[in-house]
Amino acid sequence: MNRIAAWTVISLLLVFLIGPFIIILGAALSAGPVMAFPPDGLSLQWFEKVFSIDSFRSSFAISIWLGLCSPLAALILGVPASYAMARYDVRGAELVRLLVSAPIIVPGIIVGLALLRYLVIPTGIGIGLALFLAHTALVLPYAVRVVSASMDNLRADIEEAAVMLGCSRLGAFLRVVLPNIRGGILAAFILGFVTSFNEVPVALFLSGPGITTLPIDMIGYMEITYDPSVAALAALLAALSIAIVFAAERFLGLSRYV
């Protein structure tokens, strides 16, 4: 493909993929009372409004907590598993892999409904805890997949050498393996954060008094009004995600792991 054709294709593609976000930003800057693009005059009033809405503040805090805690928990479970599957002859490793990655294939709405009916209601655990556990299960596949990929790039003989030289198994893991898969772990963490932070279908059923994630709260808000503050919030979320991805790409080369 020649250069001009290639760039034409890419530009069209990016207009389709990225264009909508520019429209959102434009609509959010509107001075008028309803969403419109091009906007009727410019103003920041809708951004101000987003920050003045209490429920957005509390649901944002919950989403951030979930986004940080679930990938962390998933990594605590996933790193040892990925390590073992790469280094040991684990019987049923394929089964484990399948089990762990099942949350990707099963629609989130089913997971949410199943957990509500067969975990939350019978055991009486809080919705917040259930949501945290569900999101952990949801990001576990990323943790295992991404960390496994970086384990595969790490030669086993270095670690073996460390053990032969008198390092304990745990010591070898901490001093040799962990520093080398650090990038993968961070990448998995960021992917997990983004997944959990944006997740809708599971949280649709797992929300309750005082426990609502930001995306669910946004949908709820849209039930009341379609004013441009939703666009402003969407633009802010997009900016947050873009910042995280750019930082990750810059410092870690995230795209290598996706």
Binding site: W65, L68, L72, A73, I76, G128, L129, P209, G210, I211
Partner: peptide, 18 residues
Amino acid sequence: MLKRSLIAGASVLALAPA
């Protein structure tokens, strides 16, 4: 360290209303 912050996080989530 990791474990401790996880437990802290989980308990905050679980016990938020309490």
